[in-house]
Design a protein around this nucleic acid. Structure first.
Lengths: 334, 334
DNA sequence: GTGAAAGCGCTAACAC
DNA sequence: GTGTTAGCGCTTTCAC
């Protein structure tokens, strides 16, 4: 049997309420005997007492709960992102519960499990579709997303400034003389959003992104990069793209491999860029030029929004930082 | 306010107990009026009722809880591993709670949070040190680990057959004519365990693994590979190792980059192998020869052990499967 | 076939 | 300074 406050009270000949007060620090304020408090504390430690989280929550006490929704944990972005969420949430005194959705659009049972835990807020990590959000909104539970949400009802999104990010990348590449661009991503919210942004920025410079070079593939991110890279490298004619923008580092890793399979060398034949700047980007061959997502700041934003509660509005997108590595160079070096 | 069973009962002019029975399916067995049951169900749906998990747990009802402990979520192994755990646990009807430890040896507060949730079992994902396990063992809560645990008290470990894995890799390499081996890993349970295994197997073939080529670095896995690879590539003399065994794919990705920085080409100058066969292994440049960890089977083993409860004994290690890719070839091709 | 009542462990308002 | 009591939402005897 688990040790309860009642057990401690009985053993010490005191009342459960006093034990509760002593153990939650509310006793001194009330004016309890310091010595009694100490006795209680000691006994609790001796018996290995741990408060029952379910009872606390039922009572409305205890730390507020954040339900984390992770849409695609196979994506290398998620580990670091969730790690950061865990770190910060823990420091801020939140309890966490994890829901991994098997499919990108969750089953009802996934959502139910979350609802039953009556979270203070839901934190969706990564981009995705929003239909599942409705029951939470109806109950007044804020749903904050780190990433891009699509569809109704809207989530409160903490975003990186994709406009800024691609502007940096395109400036770098255009400055080196690149004129023929391609884009590869997975067909999901991130891919679609970033393709839109990249295309617009290219057009502003009078650079075209023809449909056959704007690839959104219906697979996971790693596979999308691989296939997209291969597909581009197979393209006939001599007007190959000299630079490939990718929707994320995970995609870019696949593209690096894909174009290598097609016989292209990076960056001699083609320059490739990522987005996010995962730890892995530095280890790619060649190391990946990318744009660093300020993850810690974004998680902090998200927790602040959750703290603010229902009326919170999405903050300004966070500016990313260009990280130039070996995967980009002048076009057609050889 | 949340909708409770009492609300439904009041609205329908029934008692809370009948509502409870109807909603948990225990009503028909007792012999309640089918029509009443249907009315209750309908009303619950109409009001958007969701049972309160805290109340259920307090009562001792509701699904059993597994606490997941993830030691190092930045390691690319964790995303896929946790994804698999979530999938299977969900199907088996377990609720999950996540504890991310900030440090590999957790703070007391991390452990406390877990204890307070009174889990049915703890599932440690990935290898690590065992000191934090004591409070659970004392309370009779089984701690199952997917990976290698070190120190007391022992966890129930679901392991891949490392002996078999390295035997396959070494056989492949030795068969190609490699005689000079090196090993790179991070200084943690996985690295140490796999180095031991690899060294023993090499010795059985009369192959030496000199200390200067058996590298365990005090950093995270990605960084360990990077530094280890660089260090090996800097080695003077002409008796360079022709093959580098890595403790995991994550390490091998770093080594690929590290040796490239030292000017070595893979596999022309040196062959490199991973361990785990992450999705990323296929995308490395060159693609990584590795050994596939049967993750799904191992997670299934872990859940079975949890189901069996206290007396469970560790199952036989699962045999991995060799996956040969481009990072291994004959020695000194050029 | 349905309801009343007790209790899971904890906390807080209200005694004394 | 400390104890008594009620109740969070749910399930389960036990009674009718």
């Amino acid at each position: 049997m688990r040790v309860t406050q009642k057990d401690i009270a009985r053993k010490l000949g005191l009342s459960p309420s006093l034990v509760s007060r002593a153990l939650t620090g509310r006793a001194a304020a009330i004016g309890a005997h310091p010595e009694t408090i100490e006795r209680i504390r000691r006994e609790a430690r001796a018996l290995g007492y741990a408060p029952n989280a379910a009872a606390r929550r039922l009572r409305g006490a205890g730390p507020p709960l954040i339900a984390i929704v992770a849409a695609d944990m196979e994506d290398p972005f998620f580990g670091p992102a969730i790690a950061e969420v865990v770190r910060q949430a823990h420091r801020a005194g939140y309890a966490l519960t994890l829901a991994g959705f098997e499919r990108r659009t969750p089953y009802a049972s996934d959502v139910d499990a979350l609802l039953q835990n009556d979270p203070e807020a839901v934190l969706a990590v990564g981009s995705g579709e929003n239909a599942w959000v409705r029951p939470f909104v109806e109950r007044g539970i804020p749903v904050v997303r780190i990433g891009v949400g699509s569809g109704a009802p809207a989530t409160i999104d903490v975003r990186v400034d994709e406009e800024k990010g691609f502007a940096l990348l395109i400036e770098l590449l255009a400055g080196k003389g690149h004129r023929a661009f391609a884009f590869v991503g997975a067909r999901n919210e991130v891919g679609e959003s970033r393709l839109r942004v990249a295309r617009r920025l290219l057009q502003k410079r009078g650079l075209d992104l023809p449909a056959r070079r704007a690839l959104l593939l219906d697979t996971d991110v790693l596979e999308a990069g691989l296939r997209g890279g291969e597909q581009l490298a197979r393209e006939e004619g001599r007007d190959w793209p000299s630079a490939i923008l990718c929707s994320s580092d995970a995609v870019a890793l696949g593209v690096l491999r894909g174009v290598a399979m097609g016989g292209w060398r990076v960056p001699e034949h083609v320059s490739i860029t990522g987005f996010d700047d995962l730890a892995l980007a530095r280890l790619a061959n060649p190391p990946l030029t990318s744009v660093r997502q300020p993850l810690a700041a974004m998680v902090a934003d998200a927790l602040r929004l959750i703290h603010e509660g229902r009326g919170a509005r999405a903050p300004a997108p966070r500016a990313p930082e260009l990280v130039v590595r070996g995967s980009t160079d002048f076009p057609w070096k050889c």
